[in-house]
Structure formats: C-alpha cells, structure tokens
Design a protein around this nucleic acid. Structure first.
Length: 223
DNA sequence: GCGACAG
DNA sequence: ATCTTGTCGC
C-alpha cells in the first residue's frame, strides 16, 4: 500500500505540542493496560484494554476489538497503526480508567509523540508509555539490581526512564504519554509491579491481546 | 554513506 | 508483532 509518511510525521509534530507533561489527575480508582496483537499474518489488528482497580490491582473488566490492519509497521509511526483498534476497545469499556499504561513509547520518540501520547490525547486521559525496548534516546548501563534505573536522554533533555523491573530481564522504557510528569510516570509503573517484568495492567492486556491460553482462565472469572 | 529502528 | 518445544541458566 502507498503511504505518505511525511504527512503522518507532520501530524505528529503538530499534535506533540498539545501533549501535557504535568500531572493532571488525582489518585486513580482504576488503572488500565492497553496492548495490541495481530492475527492472520498481521491482516487483523487485535487491541485489548484491561481495567484494574487501584490499589488492589484486580481485573474487573477487559475489552477486545478486532479490525482490519490499516498500516504496516513503520518505526516511529506505530500510533497510526495501533490507535484505531485501541480506540474501538476504549469505546466498548463500561468502566473508564483515570490512568492508562500503553505498550510502546510516550515522548521517548523522534517527534516526541509516541503511541502513548497519541492515545492519551485522543481519549483525553492521562497515559504512560511502557515499552519493552528502545526506540529513541540514550542512557547509561542499568545495574542488574531490580529497581535500579537511569534517565533516558535526548542530548540534555530527559525523555523518560529505563527501569530494571525484574532480575535478569531486559529493562523497561518508560516515558510520559499525556497529562503525566516524568517523576509520576516512573512512580506509577513501580507501584504496579508485582514480581513480573511488566506492570500488572500491561501484563494483563499483553496476555489478552496475545491470546495466551494461560490468561484465558483468569480473565473468565471477571466476566 | 551506513546503521538503527516501539510493535 | 508472529511462527513455536524444549531447554539452558539463575
């Protein structure tokens, strides 16, 4: 398919100016995890959003949306590929969360506008980007000690954090999405860690979106 | 010019 | 991301 990527990148630059990087939310009652998976050789996009209570972190609802894949994967343009499906799932929710952990980068992006920023602006809800690998920014080595972290930098400007969330696991790349500060983005992810590499909301959404049999049992309880 | 590159 | 069982290491 023919895609004018220069136009999409221009949209990102314009939208990035609207992203809010200070805390604009009270202590959340519900925190969500959002992730996307694919079926049929990538022709179908499947988005999952898991709603969990705070501070219990118990799953109370989840929604899945399946739509035809609109774009191929292009580094830097992930939001245009995943947001449509995420928005479909969002509209199905009976409970709207006050904070969302989105898989992928927040402002740690070449245009300072990753998928977490894009989705947060779209639904006007605070979001934090939690990515499993690096896209943009530099950082010094992370100690092996769980809980250790380093700032993720762009020259002299900090974009986020690189956190060793679990022993012998690759670190997490955390950055503000929308209406969240640098300090809070790290703090909330830490609060949602329960012994696994991924924070609970993200881990749950990831399991559901990836259709892992392991998660099919536990999610049946909440319906 | 060459490599890097969220999911 | 996805195709996929056992297996190496802490």
């Amino acid at each position: 398919m023919a895609i004018d990527t220069s136009e999409l990148r221009q949209q990102q630059l314009e939208k990035s100016r609207q992203v809010v990087l200070t805390d604009d939310f009270a202590t959340p009652r519900l925190i969500a995890g959002a992730d996307v998976g694919f079926e049929q050789q990538g022709t179908v996009t499947r988005a999952a959003i898991a709603i969990m209570t705070w501070p219990e972190l118990e799953l109370i609802e989840y929604q899945i949306a399946r739509i035809p894949t609109l774009l191929p994967y292009i580094p830097g343009l992930l939001s245009f590929r995943e947001c449509p499906a995420l928005y479909e799932a969002w509209q199905l929710l009976q409970h709207k969360p006050q904070l969302v952990l989105v898989d992928g980068q927040g402002i740690a992006h070449p245009r300072y506008f990753g998928v977490a920023c894009h989705f947060g602006l779209l639904v006007d809800i605070p979001t934090i980007g939690v990515a499993k690998s690096r896209l943009f920014g530099t950082h010094s080595e992370i100690e092996q000690q769980p809980g250790s972290y380093q700032p993720l930098m762009d020259k002299t400007q900090q974009l986020g954090w690189v956190l060793r969330s679990k022993k012998r696991c690759n670190p997490l790349y955390i950055s503000p999405g929308h209406k969240v500060s640098l300090a809070s983005s790290l703090w909330w992810v830490e609060q949602c860690l329960k012994g696994y590499r991924l924070p609970e909301p993200t881990r749950m959404a990831d399991g559901i979106a990836s259709n892992r049999t392991k998660f099919k049992r536990m999610i049946n309880k909440s319906r």
